[in-house]
Write a protein that binds this DNA or RNA. Structure first.
Lengths: 348, 348
DNA sequence: GTTAATAGGTTAAACGTTTAATGGAATGAA
DNA sequence: TTCATTCCATTAAACGTTTAACCTATTAAC
């Protein structure tokens, strides 16, 4: 691989100084004559010259690159459509504004994320669903770099964020189940690793208590956001007597896992037990029975986060530091339809 | 945002030269004393110094970053699991070897991809499913940069590539349908935009001709790899008389679209028309009936491509320039089981 | 008491750009 | 002729690192 030609080579070949080449490249027409421009251009194509972006970035002190930071768990993209949806949205705006995206999976136990994040290779960072007590979130609060969190909107936290209102969204779902007559509702959630996990559980509490219903310890199972956890949870719930009549699941993964166990156990859904998921991923739309779920606009989330980040980076300032996008409860076969008979009920 | 401290600031504060700081950072213990090391370290943490990666890259003439190039169509990641699967695989190896990934969606009509690709911001490029006659593939053949193609293995092409054998894979699927007694098989494929499209259609031809079956023009529909195209194709096929008894679909997207139309038309699957997909995406596993399909190991594809690329970049040379990973035909409800009664038949 | 070796630094060039400051020739005006 | 302008181009510093080459005390060897 022969060394690439530099601006110096071009200058020599065109018989001008490197400054002139740079000016031609920049298109500052008032600074050079037509004749030199032609000579420079021909030198460029002869030598197949490409400006070195690294050198440019060093000089300009920016990179036109956005960092997209996730957990080091690299199966994230395929396993959860939330991540790929958000990334798609980020990508869509980045492409429009001519930014690149750098993927930085970081171990959640990494105590010094700044080493990877503040190395000048990105102009700003998007933190996707950071863990509640992790180093990443703490780092973001120090505001050493333009940074936006997506998937976690804590109004008491100063870091700019884009997301849904997890509490209200799950509340709407829970109320719907209650409105359909369920009295013994189980919550299949996640440990409080992420913001959303806590909010969704709090919403369950609120819904139950405002309806005067009991929500004892045994009616809730806190695992992780994945199918296996849902299976485990369902098995626990089936041991109870009386059994719950509905599962409020904090993620679709959990819901699908639970559904599998119920079906294996010969429990009918929704007649015996209704299921409500969260995220409205493809799998709940295609499963049988199709699962009711709470849809969040993942792609818009990503796009909005990117827009916010670019506002910071490019110095436009922020009109709002917190942006909440609406969610929708989608009713399908795994629950009854809501009383007021339209298929979808908005929340927020 | 205050300017970040540089190696110069650290040097000043520690009372040494910047060279010494650099050596301490590098851990060249034989070049400095314990005392200076301590002073430097304390200056570093006092000033919260982070080495500037851009400057490093410039000096070292490399970036420890891999480019992942896709079509500019930013919905790719969510719409097709092939892309996210491959990306996941790439990511998995990149994380292990401490490389970053830069996403570069490039418009397929971009006539000068080198501007974005040869800018020194990546050490090498992974081209995901490039179009057959596009500028990207042509660029890759010029070998100006370490580059690996994934999803297209043309043995007559010198560019290093990782993929499946699309021809053999589809051939196995087609033969299976024939073995099940189908005589009038329609091919629902894609225009020859991508390598795989051509190979899969050629496999259909081969299978039909070797079985002495007719494969007339009207039995094939060439659209794109998406659901809408499948719907269109199915509508066309339903007009034929006699109708085909099986659809060999070149992608799961097409298969799902076709299935939808068949179900709307009251055609039973597989009794009236059998369906075979390709890719084994989640949606065919969850649909009703579940669709038979050809599984390709997307994540391994990505991981292998990344490994190959790193071999080139890090100068280890290539044992093999073309790597073909095995596929499996998965039989589900949308076709009969194969005669020899085991559920999956390997190919390659 | 030389000389050689070693430990522990420093100097300065280089990586490939951008850009402020400067310069000089040609043109135009007085 | 002289001065101001305009046009076109150059010089040189800067961005933040790395590293080969060099330097100077100190210690070791004889």
């Amino acid at each position: 691989m022969k060394p690439r030609s530099t601006i110096k080579d071009v200058a020599t070949r065109a018989g001008v100084s490197i400054a002139t080449v740079s000016l031609v490249l920049k298109g500052q027409t008032e600074r050079y004559s037509e004749k030199t421009a032609v000579r420079v251009q021909e030198a460029i194509s002869r030598l197949k010259y490409r400006p070195n972006q690294t050198a440019r970035n060093l000089q300009r002190r920016l990179s036109r690159t956005l960092g997209f930071v996730t957990h080091k768990d690299y199966e994230l993209l395929t396993r959860s459509q939330w991540y790929s949806g958000v990334l798609d949205g980020v990508l869509s705006l980045a492409v429009e504004r001519d930014y690149d995206i750098k993927l930085s999976p970081i171990a959640s136990d990494n105590s010094a994320p700044e080493r990877k994040l503040e190395d000048g290779s990105t102009d700003g960072i998007i933190l996707a669903a950071p863990e509640e007590n992790g180093a990443l979130l703490k780092w973001a609060r120090e505001e050493n770099m333009p940074c936006v969190v997506v998937g976690r909107v804590d109004l008491n936290d100063k870091v700019p964020a884009v997301g849904i209102d997890d509490f209200e969204a799950e509340l709407a779902a829970a109320r719907a189940l209650i409105a359909q007559g369920h009295r013994r509702i189980a919550f299949l959630g996640s440990a409080w690793i992420q913001w959303s996990a806590r909010q969704r559980e709090l919403a369950y509490d609120k819904a139950m208590s405002e309806a005067g219903l009991a929500a004892p310890r045994e009616l809730r199972f806190l695992g992780r956001y994945h199918e296996q956890s849902g299976e485990e949870a369902a098995r626990e719930m089936l041991k109870l007597s009386p059994r719950p009549t509905a599962f409020l699941c904090a993620s679709d993964e959990i819901a699908i896992g639970a559904l599998r166990v119920l079906q294996q156990a010969g429990v009918r859904v929704p007649q015996d037990i209704a299921i409500m998921g969260f995220d409205d991923e493809l799998k709940v739309q295609l499963s049988r029975p199709q699962l009711s779920s709470v849809r969040q606009p993942t792609s818009e989330l990503g796009r909005t986060a990117a827009a916010l980040l670019l506002d910071i980076i490019e110095g436009r300032g922020l009109k709002e530091r917190k942006i909440i996008l609406p969610t929708t409860v989608i009713f399908r076969e795994s629950t009854a339809r809501p009383d007021h008979s339209d298929a979808a009920v908005g929340s927020m």
